[in-house]
């Protein structure tokens, strides 16, 4: 469990750092984040290949990559939206920068997955059962966030919320989807963490 929290905190820290990336630096936040996600994928593969006692299975490897990457993407998006403000527009420098950085991070997630994934994928009915628990939590979280968003937009329009542009609302909706997905991956990783803890218990 502690490993999940550490990776979550590191990924969140990465997302926030990228959102406050200095403009004058020779390369942007997106390429930097992409590079760091690739390095994280290489490091994860190295660690898992050396683990002979209780290495993660194929679905768990995928979940680690998805969890770390989506936490970085979500925190980057959240911090960027916060920094830009409610009147965010797409065809502006800030809008273009957010688009490039976000898609670079998505590309980094894909590359990290390709590097760290199990070369010989293997899963069984219990993995499917754990995945169904994750889907359950994802759908419930998404429904809750959408309902919350609807209520806030419709019934509690503070001055800040009234000023929200359509692109800003659209990006908040995307953020809700990523957060729901993140909750699903966390639930699944917790189930696998229980597996590892049980495997370490004496027979």
């Amino acid at each position: 469990m502690i490993r999940i929290l550490i990776v979550l905190a590191l990924a969140g820290g990465l997302g926030f750092s990228l959102a406050s990336w200095p403009l004058g630096w020779p390369f942007g936040a997106g390429p930097a984040g992409l590079g760091l996600l690739v390095v994280a994928g290489v490091a994860a593969r190295g660690i898992w290949n050396r683990d002979s006692t209780s290495p993660p299975g194929s679905p768990e490897r995928t979940l680690w990559v998805l969890m770390g990457s989506s936490a970085a993407i979500a925190t980057h998006l959240l911090a960027s939206l916060w920094r830009i403000g409610p009147e965010f527009e797409l065809n502006t420098d800030a809008g273009h920068r957010l688009g490039i950085d976000s898609w670079s991070l998505v590309l980094g997630m894909g590359l990290a997955y390709a590097i760290a994934r199990d070369p010989n994928p293997r899963s069984d009915e219990r993995d499917a059962w754990i995945a169904s628990r994750g889907t359950h939590w994802t759908s419930n979280t998404l429904a809750s966030l959408v309902l919350l968003m609807a209520v806030v937009l419709a019934f509690e329009p503070t001055e800040e919320i009234r000023r929200l542009s359509r692109p800003a609302i659209a990006h908040v909706a995307i953020l809700c989807v990523i957060l729901a997905w993140l909750v699903g991956t966390l639930v699944q990783l917790y189930a696998y963490a229980l597996d590892h803890a049980a495997a370490r218990e004496p027979a």
Binding site: R126, D127, Y192, D195, A198
Partner: peptide
């Protein structure tokens, strides 16, 4: 039987009920 070692551990520790097929 075509499952993972983790599933055998979960079965032995009664943390998982298998499908009828398994």
């Amino acid at each position: 039987v075509g499952i993972t070692r983790q599933t055998v551990i979960a079965l032995e520790q009664r943390r998982y009920a298998p499908s009828l097929e398994l």
